[in-house]
Design a protein around this nucleic acid. Structure first.
Lengths: 225, 225
DNA sequence: CCTTATTGTTATCTAATTGTTAATCGGTTT
DNA sequence: AAACCGATTAACAATTAGATAACAATAAGG
């Protein structure tokens, strides 16, 4: 699996650290760990993680304090912070929000929930940072206006169609498997059947012509160079 | 987080300085500090802050005096000054007004209040500095008179309708999400439901015709080029 | 204080988008 | 040539988002 992001996990219990770490690595994340807030900060400074997963209750420096320091540091403008909170400590939700956390995950942690939530958060992040427009062949695919320009012709695609084309066009020539596409365009919360993608591909071809999207039988689709 | 403005905070108490600084940075402001009026002036000269947050009671050079000097300097035409005043020192309100302050915040400071007030002030500032009128298609959208001119026809929009149209027209073609619109037109203190935007869009379309504002389903609205 | 205009909410209707299914096609394999 | 495979395509169904109208709350002006 490709490299999809760096995550720093901070928790004082070695078991939990390993459990989370294992599950995230399996997912393809680059995982770093720290046993408390104090040690976490310099590590974070160095590796610039995309996301920091922070236990609220820790010795030395707790999650709230760590989060505050992270959010106060402009180096971490691009870093998401997610709290791990025991369900009983729901007071932390208030404090945590105040400290600037971006999301919460309640303990006990289920691997599926963990991975799903983090995927969702990081996908959002990637989208926000994505280039607003792509130029390929004679097309300009423009996120600002959600239009495809071909010469002075404007072509309007439906939202999903647009996202799908945008994905393929973001790496012309690369074959995206249906699994890929599903994950990136639909997100893993949603469950749709494979054929749905084919149908959307067809709609795009109808609107743009057949010359842009190629089929690689048994593998997936790609934007033709 | 985007860069939304530069703020210079001037106070002789290091604790307060840090407290304010932290809360404003969290909000995305670029924050500078100074311990008194005398030191504040050269810093202000250099960084040209959008807003100066000024404690009234300070050694070396107090807030009133500092404010007078700032307001006397044409370099700071564009700079807002907000006083921090202890509730008991209400006399300062008179003096402060006299010195040309734009607003007051009473100590003890609550982070929410601080941030909300400054956001409001700076939003107002941004609006005031924005181009007073926009020409798009056959429309002249004029802030001075809050009127829309089409040829020699004058069209009157309600305030919110005007602001909304003005926003969309400020970047013709760009799609604004409802979230975008809410933030820019309503501001984050107010909470209104998404449909409200739709209704305002409809009102604008009623008054101007359907050809100006386009809908991008699942995304938002845009001013049609 | 009353009236009116503005602003905001809600429920219903409509149309576009999105998703499913199944028949069909074209190429490959046996 | 028959069976097989995955992709294409058309037709249809489900879902969702937005338009709209009618109404309620709030603010502004006389």
């Amino acid at each position: 699996m490709e490299n999809i992001g760096k995550i720093l996990v901070v928790d004082d219990e070695a078991d939990i650290l390993e459990f989370i770490s294992y599950n995230l690595k399996k997912e393809g994340y680059e995982v770093y760990t720290a046993p408390n807030g104090k040690e976490a900060l310099p590590i974070a400074k160095k590796i610039k993680p995309d996301l920091i997963l922070l236990d609220v209750m820790m010795p030395v420096m707790d999650g709230i304090e760590t989060c505050k320091r992270i959010k106060a540091d402009t180096d971490f403008d691009q870093t998401y912070v997610v709290f791990l909170t025991a369900r009983s400590e729901d007071y932390s939700e208030i404090e945590g929000l105040d400290a600037g956390a971006d999301d919460y995950i309640a303990k006990p942690i289920k691997p599926k929930v963990l991975v799903t939530r983090l995927n969702a958060i990081l996908r959002r992040k990637i989208k926000e940072m994505a280039a607003p427009s792509i130029k390929v062949k004679d097309l300009l695919i423009d996120r600002e206006s959600f239009l495809i320009y071909r010469g002075d012709q404007k072509i309007q695609l439906a939202r999903k169609e647009f996202e799908l084309l945008f994905l393929l066009a973001s790496k012309p020539g690369k074959v995206f498997t249906r699994e890929n596409i599903l994950e990136k365009v639909w997100g893993d919360e949603v469950l749709v059947v494979d054929r749905t993608i084919d149908v959307h591909i067809r709609k795009i071809r109808e609107k743009l012509g057949d010359e842009y999207i190629g089929t690689v039988k048994g593998v997936g689709y790609k934007f033709e160079i």
